[in-house]
Structures are given as C-alpha cells and as structure tokens.
Amino acid sequence: ACPVSGAERTSQEIWESFSQCFTPAVKEVVEFAKGIPGFQELSQQDQVMLLKSGTFQVLMVRFCTLFNAEERTVTFLNGQTYPLSTLRALGMSSLLDAMFEFSEKLGSLGLEPDEMALFMAVVLVSADRSGISDMRAVEQLQEGLIRALRSLITRRRPDDTTLFSKLLLRLPDLRTLNNLHSDKLLAFRID
C-alpha cells in the first residue's frame, strides 16, 4: 500500500531515508555477488537473472541485524532508528511483522559474520530460476556453496547437528517473504 501517515513531514523523511539507504544496499549486493567464487563464470544474463530474483532475499538476511525484536525498533543503514509503530503508519506492517519474525529466528542461530556471508551467497544462488539459461551451472554453484557452508558450520560446532538444517529451513521463509512483499508498491523519490 502507498504510505499514509498523519505527520506528512516525518513519513516523507522516513521514505527518503529508506530510499537513500536502499539503492546503495542493492548495489552492495551486486558487488557481493561478483565476489562469490564462480558467480562471474555464469553468463551475464544468468548473473542478472539471479540478482533480480535473489537480491531482495539477500537484503532481508542482511537487514536482519537492523531489526531489534526486544525493543521493536528498526535501524536504517544510515544509523537512524525508528520504532515499529512509526513504520507501521507507513503501511508496511505485514512486511515488518514478517521481518521481525524472520530476524528473530535467524538471529537465534547466532551465526558468525563469515557464516552469514556464506549463507547469503547460498540464498542468492538458490533464488527463483525462471529465465536461467544454464541451469546446470547454477546448480553446481549452489551445491558447492552449500557444501562450503555445511563444512564451515560443522567444523565450528561439531556437536550441534541441527544448526545447518535449521539454516536451510530459512530459505523457504525467504522465498515467502520475497513473494509476499517484493512486488508491493513503494514510492521512491528519484532526483
């Protein structure tokens, strides 16, 4: 839904602050993807396709740490923190609720930064594949990244046999988040 809020200035400010953070964050996912071993061996078309279908999900993982479940606040990448109630007034409440729930579940797994980065790589190459020309190459890339993630996690936590599967169970959550919210209308101010 388009944002509606009494205090016109604050909602406008919030949208601008969101838009200013969002575009660079998308560009950072593109740079991140180019750093994934093997990603740039895919055809340019397949790289673009995976990024178009996976970037929103990678951002959801990345934004997890910005959602503070206890205090019900969200901190944008520019450091500004907003209470959930203020953001609800912008009409994104179902996305916000889903994000709080998702970030609580992922946060509870206590991943290290490098494990989180490898998980984001798996998220990207596990994105929707309609439009992919070389399916085999994408599957091989995905298998390699999942193997690397499993060995990193099991090496660090040999006695925790459930963490890896709990992590993979987040993939369908992300797919749902993506399908429910990435096609929502959002106003962006473009200079």
């Binding site: 998308v26 970037t55 959002l186």
Partner: peptide
C-alpha cells in the same frame, strides 16, 4: 524539483541491477 516515481521494490531492484551491468559492460 525532486521527481517522485512510484515503483515496486522488485522493479526498483531490477532497475539498479540492469544499470550496473550496462555500466560495467
């Protein structure tokens, strides 16, 4: 003056990605 374009999040992401790859061709 700032132009105000309405688009979906998915379209906004696609737009940025297409621009990036076009620029780095």
């Amino acid at each position: 003056p700032k132009t105000h374009r309405v688009m979906t999040l998915a379209d906004h992401i696609s737009h940025i990605i297409t621009q990036d790859f076009a620029r780095n061709k």
